[in-house]
Amino acid sequence: MQQHFDGLTFVIGDEAQLQAMPDLAPFPPFAAEMLALLQTFSRLTLRDDEAKAWPDVISLGFWCRAASLNQMRAAYGDLAHRYGRGVALHIAPGNVAANFAYSLFSGLLTGNANIVRLPGRDHLQVPIIVRLLCAALHEHPALAPYICLLRYDRQQGINDALSALCDTRIIWGGDETIAQIRRSPLKPRALDIAFADRYSLAAIDADRYLAHADKGKLAQAFFNDTLLNDQNACSSPSLLVWLGVETQAAREQFWQHFQAFAARHYPLEPVAAVNKLTRLYQLAAQYPGVKKVSDDDNLVVRVELAALTPGVMALRGNCGFFMEYVADSLNDMTPLCDARCQTLATFGIEKTTIDAWLAARRPKGIDRVVAFGQTLDFTLQWDGYDLVALLTRNVANTL
């Protein structure tokens, strides 16, 4: 059936290239050609003056370094009989600027041709990344047919046409976005991978924090986890759980350091300040014992909870809005660790303690446990999915 693509705006590629993608031969995962393309992108990015103004763009460049890519490859065993599934359609989220690139690069590393719907929001980082990717493709023209970047509004006909081309569809977004895209049928053997809207938590041992020598550095790490992207990423913590004895002293020092760093590096928009106060009032109206424990400048709004009730995470905020709870143990967090809970960021808590808690409580959520400063570090195992396994097919050769 003839597909119609009226309404598409191509940023990289064109309609003829798009139509030809299903006929491209997939590469094996971590193919030398793909590695070379991403390493060129890394080199160009890390030398680019405009890119250096954006930490998330530079982080993307570091992610594509040869050492980083080799480490990813080393994490997998024998991939000799795996090949990309074919065409991957990526529906990028609107709230995190560089996410489309990580999704695209995952598709390239697993040997696929890739169609990417760019975020609809006007992130300034997106044209920088696109420009650098175009420059990298100029040095690797044979791989240009494997990448189409495009934009379009929420048009069912275009979703239908693009979904009919793909062998894997990767959807980043909220429940409504996922439901809308899933109205478009896939080929019988095509797969859907949905990265739904989720939330993340942080847990910190107060006594070990007080003994920590470089509290300023830890404040910067938590800033990178949160305010670097306005807490818009699912992996950015919105609730901080305190453990230990000296929780009051630790909280005072932690937030003093964090507030000082944020004051130098985070511009507070008036609308964000209003939204944070609105969220505070909503929480206080619905959950008894909620109280504001931060000062009055609204750069950082801290809300102390009297209990960890599962529904409270639906009222999480962003742009410097943090809920806090003083817990007796990790067990207190269990009610919040349902399927919507993605990442647990920790400081001062032993890995064995976390492993024992996970084994005992077996929560349906928490797909990642990372140290402070690492919540935004994208890997090929994300949201509980192994992207190398899902974006490739295995040829079972029993000869």
Results as ranks from 00 to 15, higher is better:
293 V>P: 03
76 Y>W: 07
331 N>I: 08
28 P>T: 14
111 G>E: 08
38 L>F: 07
210 L>G: 08
189 R>S: 14
79 L>T: 01
61 G>L: 03
108 L>Q: 09
80 A>H: 13
67 A>V: 12
353 T>P: 00
18 L>I: 02
3 Q>Y: 14
199 Y>F: 15
78 D>Q: 06
398 T>R: 14
397 N>A: 10
200 S>A: 12
161 A>D: 02
78 D>S: 05
98 A>C: 13
171 I>M: 03
268 L>V: 14
88 A>I: 05
129 I>T: 07
264 R>G: 12
10 F>R: 09
28 P>G: 15
125 Q>C: 02
10 F>Y: 15
268 L>Q: 13
231 Q>T: 08
282 Q>C: 10
184 S>R: 10
240 L>T: 09
175 D>A: 15
339 A>P: 00
301 V>Q: 10
160 D>M: 00
284 A>F: 06
168 T>L: 14
126 V>N: 10
52 K>L: 13
298 N>M: 13
167 D>A: 04
76 Y>I: 05
57 V>K: 02
210 L>A: 04
267 P>W: 07
225 D>M: 12
276 K>P: 08
197 D>Q: 15
114 N>V: 12
197 D>G: 13
74 A>I: 00
359 A>L: 12
9 T>I: 13
155 Q>Y: 09
278 T>M: 12
128 I>C: 05
164 A>Y: 03
90 H>I: 11
336 L>E: 01
321 F>N: 01
13 G>Y: 04
152 Y>P: 03
284 A>C: 02
32 A>E: 15
124 L>C: 10
77 G>W: 03
24 L>C: 06
248 Q>C: 11
289 G>N: 10
99 N>E: 11
147 I>S: 04
147 I>K: 06
320 G>H: 06
22 P>G: 13
366 I>T: 07
152 Y>N: 08
244 G>Q: 10
191 L>I: 12
195 F>C: 02
279 R>D: 12
337 C>K: 04
35 L>F: 09
284 A>P: 03
380 L>Y: 06
290 V>A: 04
150 L>I: 07
213 A>N: 11
108 L>K: 04
164 A>W: 00
168 T>R: 13
126 V>W: 07
218 L>Q: 09
14 D>V: 03
64 C>H: 05
286 Q>C: 13
107 G>H: 03
134 C>R: 15
74 A>F: 03
190 A>Q: 06
260 A>P: 00
299 L>F: 05
264 R>E: 15
359 A>G: 03
146 Y>C: 11
65 R>N: 00
331 N>Y: 08
397 N>R: 13
287 Y>A: 10
289 G>A: 11
251 R>E: 12
181 I>L: 10
108 L>C: 06
